[in-house]
Design a protein around this nucleic acid. Structure first.
Lengths: 151, 151
DNA sequence: TCTAATCCTATTATTATGGTAGGATTAGTT
DNA sequence: AACTAATCCTACCATAATAATAGGATTAGA
């Protein structure tokens, strides 16, 4: 189906959401993956680009884990997704490095995909981690345990 | 690269664009694929769901081909993409048949993906084939030949 | 020194993508 | 009637991306 987000982007947002809920204290991936059936090993791979992008800070050794590198209000979902998955580019010919030979300037469909990309970025950039956490407070969860999607 | 559209959706729009330009006369896939290096056999597969969705009308035999089943102004890019690729569902848990066990009701990220999906649909549904063709008339192409993207 | 944790680099199974291929059917042309 | 251009239908396949798994190195608190 079109315009799919892979599990990497999906899980990345969920990890960041958990970190935002944990506030200042370091959360281990073991804890984050424990409440769900997600592989800790897989989450390690997903966290790496988040760290490299300066969105989280890792602390090694006993008692280590991750914290948000910034306030939750200063981190958008868009930053998270792009850090893990790269830029939002629905179709090749809209990408930065796309050669004009592969897509002539007068390609009319191009503007459609550009608009789609912008619309996606707009939505993602308009939502911060704080927004996600606040919603959680406003309408308290009826079910205990994790709030992750999918497996 | 998140939120990608596959070549099927991409090519489907380009096919429909060509049919919109051809007006009432039947255009063969051979003609449409000839100006580009797209496989006619592959286009056949892409056109089928368009026909099944009632967007185009096929005519067999010598001199056959395809025409738009409706006016270009009554066909949106969204219809085309969804006919070929299925509904716009960025993440599984937002899909219609998604089981609640796989995604609890209180999943906060869910609302994000729903908003993204709606934003994409809004853009795609706001653009008709006529819009694409009209843009083409307004700024006449400097290059002759096809205006397709990618290979 | 033990252990819990982050880090780093491969490897792998599954799935989706992007086609190709073979043929059947339809219908105009000669 | 034969030929040919086209749509139709079904299956198959090679490659790439996805989604993990795995082995191990490093760090640092207890």
């Amino acid at each position: 189906m079109p315009f799919r987000l892979s599990t990497r982007g999906h899980y990345a947002v969920l990890i960041m959401y958990e970190l935002a809920r944990s506030g200042e204290s370091f959360s281990s991936l073991q804890d984050i993956s424990a409440s769900q059936r997600l592989s800790q090993r897989y989450l390690e791979q997903i966290v790496r680009p988040l760290r490299q992008a300066g969105l989280v800070q890792g602390k090694r050794g006993f008692g280590g884990g991750y914290v948000l590198a910034r306030e939750a209000s200063a981190i958008t979902v868009g930053e998270i997704v792009r850090a893990v998955e790269g830029p939002v580019v629905p179709v090749e010919c809209v990408a930065d490095g796309s050669t004009p030979e592969r897509c002539p300037d007068d390609c009319k469909a191009k503007s459609v995909w550009q608009k789609v990309g912008e619309a996606i970025d707009n939505v993602l950039d308009s939502i911060t981690l704080e927004d996600l956490v606040r919603d959680d407070i406003e309408q308290p969860a009826s079910s205990k345990g994790g709030q992750f999607c999918d497996k």
